[in-house]
Amino acid sequence: MRFLQPTTWAEALEAKTVHPDAVAIAGGTDVMVAVNFGRLRPAALLDLTRVGELQEWGTEDGVVRLGAGVPYARVITELGDRLPGLAMASRTIGSPQIRNRGTVGGNLATASPAGDAHPALLAADAEVEVASVRGTRTIPISDFYRGVKRSALAADELIAAVRIRPPSGPQQYSKIGTRNAMVIAVAAFGLALHPDRRAVGTGIGSAAPTPRRATAAEDFLAGELASAGLWESRAELPATTAARFGELVASAAAPIDDVRGTAAYRVHALSVMARRTLGWAWTEYRTSKEV
């Protein structure tokens, strides 16, 4: 097995072009598990931990550009205010050791339907910045997931960063596991209210072949909020609206029975999580100052 260790982004892209079958490794929390269990024997590993650019985040035109190699621990401590949904998702991930190693870029590259960052990224309308020696392109998050552990990434491309607009409204994230920490999601849900655009963002995890949005639920809720003038009035949300939102989120899922939970439970849990997170987000919106 070749071990490639570029120290600059240009070298990394060059290496990926020369070795398109190389598996990129950052925190190694997915890759090394697969290697240790004998499920992955790549021709080459492309270690990205020496590429300094990937370890940074910054703000460009008001958009947060999160380098693909920034670990979850830093998302929590440095970006809790700017990226609240992603930070909440990050808090649910693994143990402190895993959060010190694991990265959002790695979560995207693995593209597991159970990846914890995905629902938050979907709800926030994130964009994935990918690059190769051919150039850089930006993929809307909704177009990124293409199948179980498959993404829109080409063989010669690497994930450079994720671009996320800071929130104009509350964000929430909720995840079901059968233990109270260090657990893979049985089902997860991300929610973002976008008062600036009068829109709603959602993301569903572990309940379909890919992470996905619940667009019917988004449209329903945005419509209800608009027609009742709730964005402006900040009045209480009718319980029936929250319940219907929950049902629509659940109906967007296409889960399976597996060792972690049944399809029926996942659907049920999504409806509860969607209803509850909406309640929390709306309470936060109602009680926050108008900007």
């Binding site: 808090r91 649910t92 079901i176 596991g177 109270n180 920490a181 509860v272 509850r276 309640g279």
Partner: peptide
């Protein structure tokens, strides 16, 4: 959250 069912996974703030 650490004292709630679901822990930091943020599934309940007391509901249910």
């Amino acid at each position: 959250l650490r004292h709630r069912p679901g822990g930091v996974s943020n599934t309940t703030h007391g509901e249910g």
